[in-house]
């Protein structure tokens, strides 16, 4: 760890006003590009970041492999992106009679958080490659579905009849499922996802 960084970290952990002020300023600067998107949660997210930084520094997680500012940037960006994505995520509705797909996660199910990180990345890579195989128009349609648009709204926005829209979305769904099956099982019907 560089001497200056070590000094700032030590001062921050001791509550030195100058060090705390400097770190707080860096956090605010790094978080600034996310501010508009975070909206009213901005202050809460900044506070979360401060607490996370404090926790990480107390645990000695910052080992000086990069500059302290770069380390802060990583934490800030990771936290802000996670928060932005969590706010925009629409969880699918469940039937009252089942528990969704959780009980039958299928060949592409992401391993649990406690599972092998490499396996998670491999599955994530596969899912992204499945997505590549689906036409851009389909991605746009499903982006609107994920954004919580009703088919009536989508029909109006896109200027197509509701029936036409529903059929297009259905075909997109079929393309995604076919691509998913193809990459998961391969043309010969293997049982393991193939990784290029």
């Amino acid at each position: 760890m560089q001497g200056e960084d070590a000094e700032v970290v030590a001062g921050f952990l001791k509550g030195d006003a100058r060090a705390v002020g400097a770190v707080d300023g860096w956090i605010s600067r790094a978080a600034y590009p996310y501010q508009r998107r975070l909206g009213p949660r901005w202050d809460d997210v900044l506070q979360d970041i401060r607490l996370e930084i404090t926790r990480l520094l107390k645990q000695g997680k910052f080992r000086g492999e990069s500059s302290f500012k770069t380390y802060l940037w990583r934490v800030v960006s990771h936290t802000c992106l996670d928060q932005i994505r969590a706010a925009g995520r629409v969880q699918w509705a469940e039937l009252e009679t089942d528990s969704g797909a959780e009980d039958n996660p299928g060949p592409f199910a992401l391993p649990s958080a406690a599972g092998n990180a490499a396996a998670r990345s491999e599955v994530k890579d596969l899912l992204l490659r499945v997505l590549e195989r689906v036409p851009g128009e389909c991605r746009e349609l499903w982006r609107m579905i994920h954004a919580g648009r009703s088919y009536k709204e989508m029909s109006d926005l896109l200027g197509v009849a509701e029936g036409t829209l529903r059929v297009r979305v259905l075909r997109c769904r079929e393309k995604a499922v076919a691509a998913r099956s193809e990459l998961a099982l391969g043309p010969a019907g293997g049982s393991r996802p193939r990784v290029a």
């Binding site: 797909a101 899912l127 769904r173 995604a176």
Partner: peptide, 8 residues
Amino acid sequence: AAWEVFAQ
């Protein structure tokens, strides 16, 4: 399954 793909 499609939902999950398009949400990637």
